[in-house]
C-alpha cells in the first residue's frame, strides 16, 4: 500500500503549471494543483486537471507506426528512425532544404525543442520549423 504525489509540470502548453500526480500503488489516480507554486498558484485549467488521463489511455500509441497500404503496422524505434532518415535524405537530395519542415511540440522540454531547431537549422539548413500550437 503506497500513496504519494509525484510532482511534475503540465505538458499541455508553455505556461509551466505545477501538477501533483496522485499515485496509488503505482497507478495514477488523480491530479492536484500546487498552492505554493509561483506560476500556477494552486490553479489549473481543464486540460491540466485532466492531464493524466492519456497516460494509460487505450488509444495512446505505445510504439511507432509505419504506413502500409491503407493502414499502419507497428515498428521498432530503430526501424522507424532508419526509415525517416532514408526518406528525408532522399527528399533532401532531390529537392533541397526548403522541401523539408519540422514541427516541434509543447509536450517536449525546452531542451528537446532546442535540439529540434538545431537539427533543422544546422543539419538540414532550413528555417522551416514551427510549433504544434500553430497547427
Amino acid at each position: 500500500m503506497q500513496y504519494e504525489n509525484v510532482r511534475t509540470t503540465c505538458i499541455y502548453c508553455g505556461c509551466g503549471c505545477a501538477i501533483n500526480l496522485q499515485v496509488l500503488d503505482g497507478e495514477i489516480v488523480g491530479v492536484f494543483p500546487d498552492p505554493q507554486h509561483p506560476i500556477s498558484r494552486g490553479s489549473l485549467c481543464i486540460k491540466g486537471w485532466n492531464v493524466a488521463s492519456f497516460v494509460r489511455h487505450p488509444d495512446r500509441l505505445a510504439t511507432p507506426l509505419v504506413r502500409q497500404g491503407e493502414g499502419f503496422r507497428e515498428a521498432s524505434w530503430d526501424e522507424a528512425l532508419q526509415l525517416v532518415a532514408e526518406r528525408m535524405g532522399a527528399i533532401y537530395a532531390a529537392s533541397g532544404p526548403q522541401s523539408i519542415g519540422f514541427l516541434a511540440s509543447a509536450k517536449c522540454t525546452n531542451e528537446e525543442n532546442y535540439l529540434l531547431q538545431k537539427l533543422a537549422r544546422t543539419i538540414v539548413r532550413t528555417n522551416n520549423i514551427d510549433h504544434c500550437a500553430r497547427l
Binding site: M1, Q2, Y3, E4, N5, R7, A18, N20, Q22, F32, D34, P35, Q36, H37, G42
Partner: peptide, 27 residues
Amino acid sequence: RQTAVGTAPYLFREGDDLSQLVLEPRY
C-alpha cells in the same frame, strides 16, 4: 509531506520519516 520539490498529500506509514510531515499549505 514536504520534500525538495514541494509539499503534497502523502500516506505516512510506519518507519517513514516524520520530519517531512508539515501542516501547510491546504489540500
